[in-house]
Computed example of a mutant assay.
Amino acid sequence: MRRIVMALMMAATPAAAMDYGAGVPGDEVGRLIRAAMEEAGQAVPDFADPARAFPPCGSVPEVLPRQGSWSTAEVRCDGPVWSRAVRTGAVTGGAAMAEPTDDAGEGPMAVVLARSVARGAVLTAEDVTLAPVGTRGPDGIFTDPAEVIGRRTKTALGLGKPVLLRQLEPVWMVARGNPVVLAASAGGLAVSAPAEALDDGALGDVIRVLNKSSGREVKAVVTGRNSVMAQTNMR
C-alpha cells in the first residue's frame, strides 16, 4: 500500500517542480505536449518523443499548436529564448498550414516565418519560429532565431518559408553618416583621426570616409564597429 501511495505522489508532482537547467529530456517534452493537447481538448495521437533533449530552460516550456494546428506542436522557452517544432500527426478541424513534404522531417531545424512580413520589415521574435527544412534545404538558412531578430528584410517573405541570408540586409559595422575612427599606419607609426562614413560597410568592405581633420575624402577598410583603416595605396 505504501508503494502505491508513493507512486501516486510522484506522478502528481507538478511540472513546475522539475529543474530544466540542464535541458528538457525528450520524454519530458513529449509529456508536456500531450498534457497541453489534453488540456485543449485535442485527441492525442501516438507520436514519438524527441530523440534528443531540448536546450535548458529557466521555467516550464510553453506548448502551443503551430499556426493553430496541433499536427505540429511548438515548444517555446522564454529564458533563454528558443523554439522547437515537434510533429504529432494530430488531425484538427479547419485549415492548417501544409506540412513539409519529401524528406523534411530528416533535415535540420531552421528559422522559418511564423507569419508573412513585408519588404523592409525588421524581424521580431514573433515573426519567426523553428521547423525542419529537409536534407535538401536551400543554402543560407539560419538555425538560431537570434541570428535574424532585429535584421531588416530585402523583400516580402511568406508564411512558413525559411529565412535565407540573401533575403536580409547586411549587418553593417559602419553606417553612412555615422562618426568613425580612421586609423592609419606608416613607418611603424600608428595614428587615428575622427572621420565620417560616406558609405555603409560590413567587416572587410572598402568604403569612403571623410577625414574631419584634413577635410579629405579617403578610402578605408572596415576593421570593426565604427572603425576603419586607411589604405595609402587606394585611390
Rank of each mutant, 00 (worst) to 15 (best):
R2G: 09
M6V: 14
A7Y: 01
M10E: 14
M10Q: 14
A12S: 14
P14D: 05
A17G: 00
M18W: 12
D19Q: 12
G21T: 10
G21N: 13
G21L: 08
G21H: 10
V24I: 14
G26E: 11
G26N: 10
E28M: 15
V29Y: 12
V29N: 09
R31M: 07
A36R: 11
A40V: 01
G41R: 11
A43M: 08
V44P: 08
D46E: 10
A48R: 14
A51W: 08
F54A: 15
P55N: 07
P56G: 01
P56W: 04
C57P: 04
L64G: 00
L64I: 12
S69L: 02
W70I: 05
S71T: 11
S71N: 11
T72V: 15
E74S: 09
V75W: 09
R76P: 04
R76E: 05
C77Y: 10
G79I: 03
V81E: 09
R84N: 13
A85E: 07
A85H: 02
T88P: 05
T88W: 06
T88N: 03
T88E: 05
G89Q: 06
A90N: 02
T92I: 00
G93N: 08
A95T: 10
A95V: 11
M97Y: 08
M97S: 07
A98T: 15
A98E: 15
A98C: 05
E99W: 01
T101N: 04
D102V: 09
G105S: 13
M109Q: 15
L113D: 02
L113K: 03
A114E: 12
R115A: 09
R115P: 01
A118E: 15
A118S: 15
A118R: 15
A118H: 11
R119V: 09
L123T: 08
D127T: 13
L130V: 07
L130Y: 02
L130R: 12
A131Y: 13
D139G: 09
T143N: 12
D144F: 05
I149V: 15
I149K: 04
R151F: 02
K154P: 03
T155P: 00
T155D: 13
L159V: 02
G160Y: 01
G160L: 03
G160E: 01
L164Y: 12
L165N: 07
R166N: 12
P170W: 00
V174H: 01
A175T: 15
R176I: 06
G177K: 08
L182E: 03
L182K: 00
S185K: 11
S185H: 10
S185D: 11
G188L: 13
V191A: 10
S192K: 05
S192R: 11
P194W: 06
A195K: 06
A195C: 05
E196V: 15
G204I: 06
D205F: 04
R208D: 06
N211V: 05
E217C: 02
V218A: 08
V218W: 00
A220Y: 01
S227C: 04
V228S: 04
N233E: 14
N233I: 06
